[in-house]
Nucleic acid binder design. Structure first.
Length: 979
RNA sequence: GCGGAGGUUGCCGAGCGGACAAAGGCGCUGGCUUGAGGGGUCAGUCCCGUAGGGGUUCGGGGGUUCGAAUCCCCCCCUCCGCACCA
């Protein structure tokens, strides 16, 4: 094929398209099969990692189609979201990285690139490229259903979806802290960061201590509000500057707060109204008293250098019994002889940490003072330990004996409700810097809309749905369950990005993961929906199509008969295809998309339309390194196709690993895959050109009357049936690699053995090979459809029977299964192996090889032994049973040795686990004498051990000079090599 | 930290309680094939062995079992999620 490969592939793609064979129509004469895969975000070129994601469903779709199912395999493009806007902006600014990526790697023509300052141009260009590449790979997609997520019709559908969710009470309003770049005026995701990618946002509780004698609140920030009962003093950095500010939150009253300067700024970002009154020094407050509003005690404000004014509020409450930092700082003061009357107040009990846990940890670690770096570790250790195992020792709020975990929640909620506390957010680590080099802040979005995935009733439905689904691979099931438990409120609206506006609050755009949850339903109607004007697509229209609600009379009046007819058709089509059978997506989407879509399905559709199955993909690496477009470490699919041809790319992608496993793209392996395809093609051509008088479609029985068929012939067909069975089973379970292993490599291996064993010039062999090829080409069609169509055509089937892509997939033909032929073949193989090993060890060129077939008495004993072993008996039990026989006892030790060896042999070859066939070994070896002689290039003699027994010593010596015949076993002749 | 997956012979990667020195591929070695612009084919590729045998292996350590790469426990290491992002 070589150079012509691409042309051949193009030819078939054109023909498939011309005959529209992949367009899926509602049909009542065949069971439907609906497989779909997460649609791509076309912001760049397709690489081979994407290739696998879409090749797997294509192989499955092709297989199911050949199995006679009516298959729907659609595709669309996800263009909602913000990334493409950033890309457009960077290209507009001539950002060198962006230009390099798009011009040099993705090879976007200069003219087109100029238009890329418009994000729509980018997605439109790459959606077209995606389609071209998918076509070039021969995907059997019904392209009529293609859409993008910013089409007017689709937006109407999304509006409907959100109105439904809101009706069900799943869309709620709230506040949400996000990372925000003040310079870009945008929320920033992980990939937008220069530093601080691992930083998470921690929620601090601000406890409102009140400065004695003044209406001034000291908001101490803590992650551990439950320790407020153990406060002995407050800390303030006496060298830092603070501000006094009027602070207000929402509809509350203004309060006067003392916070560090940076903190005032942060509070502003986080939705507080802040009016700074004036600056003060931290030292101004040292030694003053503050009221703990929780327990009414008054504590002193002390100076501490570890207090970072740039972290949280810059005011800290001190719990020396449970906070290593506080303990160390207090100890520093004590060492100076100061504040000796301030002593730790333990309020949490925890085994193994003594009366004052912070002291225990600080002493054990040998921490020197409050600036000791190891205090971080000490804190982590103690916080974790107390959180997991600690119990409260205070009586207030009914906390006595309550776990720290629960107490924290209680205290926080109670104090927030009483107005004695407030919330503030801080990064878990710093610095966090935007790609534009500006420090990132935390911003609290008000009036943010959330999907309330924490709703228990909703979760219950998802759990129910999940428990009935086929999840591939099954191991991933646990992960899904976990995700359902984890999921909380999901902020489902954005300020920027492409997408659909929230129908009842147009300021917001629906977030891209949220608008991609039930579009699998949309595929079923997309091509018909397009015939309607978008403006008539009000919610009741979708209620009608998807939920079967009746159409309100006034709406009905506004529609033409044609439009009403279309609505009916869509309703019918939706019900025909839904629920979908399988959805495929990448593993990293388990934590969001794949689970979200379950939530949305159960929220909107009735139970009988809930998803039935999911398949989760592994990732792709390139020569062992993670594939990444931005790092240039990718192989573009279009390049790969050009280089190796679509079939080779497909076959490699499928054979490299099972779908859910990670796979590695390696050029040399793809190349060798191409050679394998060529080998298949030349074999096919060879077989097609063979002249055989007997029609290969005749049954074995019929054929036997006309041509001679050997055991090896029946063996080949029998093995083929096993592979057919494997392929069918594997593909039903998405084990594409296993399927290909049998569909190609195992059959190929059998053919090698077959060619070695027999001449294919024989009439019987030709018949057998034609019969095999007729199955083989169909078995391979889902994997390498182009080559298979080519073979099918060359053989003349295309004209008579149409495309191989639509031919019936091979099923097991039980009449061709011949276990005895398989057993005989196995025996021959063992003999060859044994001879080879002997030859290798003694390293001589053989003149003659003699095989001694086991004597009758061994054969009789062997089948008895085999039965006993099959019944689970061990040597100890078998021995007496077998030795009971007269002929055995007469032979004494020789017989006993034989029993022992036989048991070993049986276990060694696993004979007790399969059907065993007694084979007339002498007859078999005589038949195959020529083969042995050819194989080992020397003369072969075959004797039955019994023949020797009657002979005189001399004659016997002649035939068996070394007495090897004694070693003969059933299934294992003794061998003597004459050098 | 939490949760998930995994560590197999030079490499990739099967196997997941007996047929395992362990499929297949790649790489390497050798034979055959006049075969040339990443060639075809056969064989070998843990160690020892002049007779089909034996020895040591499947991240480390311990255990269960007649028997473990496969089951259990502990440890070490790697990868992937943890959200506002496709």
């Amino acid at each position: 094929m070589g150079i012509d490969a691409i042309e051949v592939e193009k030819k078939w793609q054109r023909r498939w398209q011309h005959h529209k064979i992949y367009e899926a129509h509602v049909r009542d004469d065949a069971p439907k099969f609906y497989v779909n895969v997460a649609y791509p975000y076309p912001s760049g070129a397709m690489h081979v990692g994407h290739g696998r994601t879409y090749t797997v469903p294509d192989v499955i779709a092709r297989f199911q189609r050949m199995k006679g199912r009516n298959v729907l395999f659609p595709m669309a493009f996800h263009v909602t979201g913000a990334p493409v806007i950033g890309i457009a902006r960077r290209i507009a600014k001539n950002d060198p990285d962006a230009i390099r990526l798009y011009r040099d790697l993705y090879k976007v023509p200069e003219e087109t690139l100029k238009k890329f300052s418009d994000p729509y141009e980018i997605v439109s260009y790459f959606s077209n490229e995606y389609k071209e590449v998918m076509d070039a790979l021969g995907y059997s997609i019904d392209w009529r259903r293609r859409f993008t997520t910013v089409d007017q019709h689709y937006k109407k559908f999304i509006e409907w979806q959100f109105l439904k969710l809101r009706e069900r009470g799943y869309v709620v309003k709230g506040e949400h802290p996000i990372r925000y770049c003040p310079s870009c005026k945008n929320p920033v995701g992980d990939h937008d960061l220069l530093a601080g990618e691992g930083a998470s946002i921690n929620e601090f509780v601000l406890l409102k201590f009140v400065l004695e004698g003044e209406e001034l609140i000291l908001p101490t920030a803590t992650l551990r509000p439950e320790t407020v009962f153990g406060v002995t003093n407050l800390w303030i950095n006496d060298e830092a500057s603070y501000v006094i500010a009027k602070v207000k939150r929402g509809s509350g009253e203004f309060e006067r707060w003392l916070v560090s300067e940076p903190a005032a700024e942060k509070l502003k970002n986080q939705g507080y109204e802040v009016e700074v009154e004036g600056r003060v020094g931290g030292s101004d407050f040292v030694d003053r008293q503050a009221l703990n509003v929780v327990d009414g005690r008054t504590v002193k404000i002390l100076p501490a250098s570890f207090v970072d004014p740039d972290f949280a509020t810059g005011v800290v409450m001190s719990v020396p019994a449970h906070a290593p930092f506080d303990f160390a700082a207090l100890r520093d003061l004590h060492r100076q002889g100061k504040y000796l009357n301030v002593l730790p107040i333990p309020i949490i009990e925890i085994e193994g940490y003594g009366e004052i846990p912070a002291e225990t940890v600080v002493m054990r670690m040998g921490i020197e003072n409050q600036n000791d770096k190891r205090l971080e570790d000490a804190t982590t250790e103690l916080y974790t330990a107390e959180f997991n195992k600690g119990r409260m020792k205070v009586d207030a709020m009914g906390l006595a004996g309550v776990s720290v975990k629960d107490a924290r929640e209680t205290v926080k909620e109670t104090l927030l409700a009483d107005g004695k506390a407030a919330l503030m957010y801080e990064f878990s680590e710093r610095p966090v810097v935007c790609r534009c080099n500006t420090p990132v802040v935390i911003s609290v979005l008000k009036d943010q809309w959330f999907l309330d995935y924490s709703d228990e009733a909703w979760k219950d439905q998802v759990r129910a749905c999940l428990s009935r689904m086929n999840v591939v691979p099954p191991e991933i099931f646990a992960e899904f369950k976990q995700v359902v438990e984890w999921l909380r409120e999901w902020a489902c609206t954005r300020r920027i990005g492409l997408g659909t506006n929230l129908p009842w609050d147009k300021e917001w755009i629906i977030e891209p993961l949220s608008d991609s949850t039930i579009y699998m339903a949309y595929y079923t109607i997309s091509y018909k929906l397009r015939e309607l004007r978008p403006e008539i697509l009000e919610p009741e229209v979708f209620d009608y199509i998807f939920l079967g609600a009746s159409l309100p009379e006034e709406k009905r009046k506004k529609l033409s008969n044609e439009e009403l007819r279309l609505l009916d058709e869509m309703r019918r089509e939706f019900l025909y295809w839904y629920p979908y059978d399988y959805r495929l997506s990448a593993r990293d989407l388990v934590g969001n998309h794949l689970t979200f879509q379950l939530f949305h399905h159960v929220a909107i559709f009735p139970e009988n339309l809930w998803p039935r199955g999911m398949v989760v993909f592994g990732m792709a690496t390139l020569q062992g390194r993670k594939m990444s477009s931005s790092k240039g470490n990718v192989v573009l699919l279009k390049d790969a196709i050009e280089k190796y041809g679509a079939d080779a790319v497909r076959m490699f992608l499928i054979g490299a690993a099972e779908p859910w496993q990670d796979f590695d793209w390696r050029d040399e392996l793809v190349f060798s895959t191409r050679r394998q395809i060529e080998r298949f093609l030349s074999f096919a051509n060879e077989v097609i050109d063979m002249e055989c008088a007997v029609d290969f479609r005749k049954s074995l029985k019929e054929a036997k009357r006309e041509i001679e068929l050997k055991s090896i012939d029946r063996w080949l067909l029998s093995k083929l049936q096993r592979h057919v069975k494997e392929v069918n089973e594997a593909l039903e379970n998405f084990q594409c690699r296993r399927a290909l292993q049998h569909a190609y490599y195992e059959i190929d291996g059998d053919l090698r053995w077959y060619r070695k064993r027999t001449s294919i010039e024989r009439e019987g062999a030709k018949w057998i090979l034609k019969k095999l090829l007729h199955v083989w080409v169909r078995l391979l069609a889902p994997f390498i459809p182009h080559v298979c169509e080519e073979v099918w055509e060359r053989w003349g089937f295309s004209e008579r029977e149409g495309y191989v892509s639509l031919a019936p997939f091979p099923e097991v033909d039980e009449t061709l299964v011949d276990k005895k032929a398989e057993a005989a073949e196995e025996l021959i193989e063992w003999v060859c192996d044994d001879i080879s090993e002997i030859l290798r060890v003694i390293n001589v060129k053989p003149q003659k090889i003699i095989l001694y077939v086991t004597p009758e008495w061994k054969r009789r004993a062997f089948s008895k032994i085999l039965n006993e072993v099959k019944a689970g008996k061990g040597l100890r039990e078998v021995m007496p049973i077998v030795m009971r026989a007269e002929e055995m006892r007469l032979r004494g030790k020789e017989a006993a040795d034989f029993v022992r060896k036989a048991v070993e042999l049986i276990k060694d070859k696993g004979m007790e686990k399969k059907d065993f066939f007694e084979i007339d070994e002498k007859k078999l070896f005589l038949e195959e004498k020529e083969f042995f002689e050819r194989e080992f290039s020397c003369e072969f003699k075959i004797y039955e051990a019994e023949e020797l027994e009657g002979l005189s010593g001399d004659e016997r010596k002649k035939l068996d000079p070394q007495g090897k015949s004694k070693a003969a076993m059933p299934t294992r002749p003794a061998i003597f090599v004459v050098a």
